[in-house]
């Protein structure tokens, strides 16, 4: 009768032998390397748009600043006799400063977020 008992060393040897012959077929590595070359070529052609939100944010903030400045100048020169008198009457120097400060903070936060978040997002690209 065949002895079927097996000790730990036997099992170790059998398991090592089992996997020893499993090597990657050449065709698989060739196909994989071709895919990687193609992927690298695609990556080079890809247009990165990570800067777009920050640039749009800057454009909007600058438009806001110009609008606030124009409104303030109109109120300063024309007083309450210019167009939209109710709004212009309220456009004090303090309001202008607050608006400009708000736009500046928005710009800084926008670019800081771009500088911090984008590299992290790129690193975690699974």
């Amino acid at each position: 009768m065949k002895d079927t008992s097996m000790n730990n060393e036997d099992m170790d040897i059998r398991l090592q032998e089992l996997y020893a012959s499993d090597n990657v077929p050449d065709y698989l590595n060739i196909a994989l390397k071709n895919k990687i070359t193609a992927k690298a070529a695609t990556e080079k052609k890809k247009i990165e748009l990570w800067w777009l939100p920050a640039v749009l944010n800057t454009v909007i903030a600058v438009i806001g600043i110009i609008f606030a400045l124009v409104l303030f100048e109109m109120a300063r020169i024309g007083g309450s006799y210019t167009i939209i008198p109710n709004i212009i009457n309220k456009a004090s120097e303090l309001t202008l400063k607050i608006t400009l400060l708000g736009a500046l903070v928005d710009l800084i936060i926008g670019w800081l977020a771009t500088a911090i978040i984008i590299p992290v997002a790129k690193n975690n690209n699974y």
């Binding site: 499993d22 990657v24 698989l28 994989l32 990687i36």
Partner: peptide, 24 residues
């Protein structure tokens, strides 16, 4: 090969592994 049941799946997992590694 050890974790999948068919050669096709093993080859697919193998290639996916290196493609993801290439991205990262």
């Amino acid at each position: 090969k050890g974790m999948t049941y068919t050669t096709e799946d093993a080859e697919d997992l193998y290639q996916q592994t290196f493609l993801v590694a290439f991205e990262k």
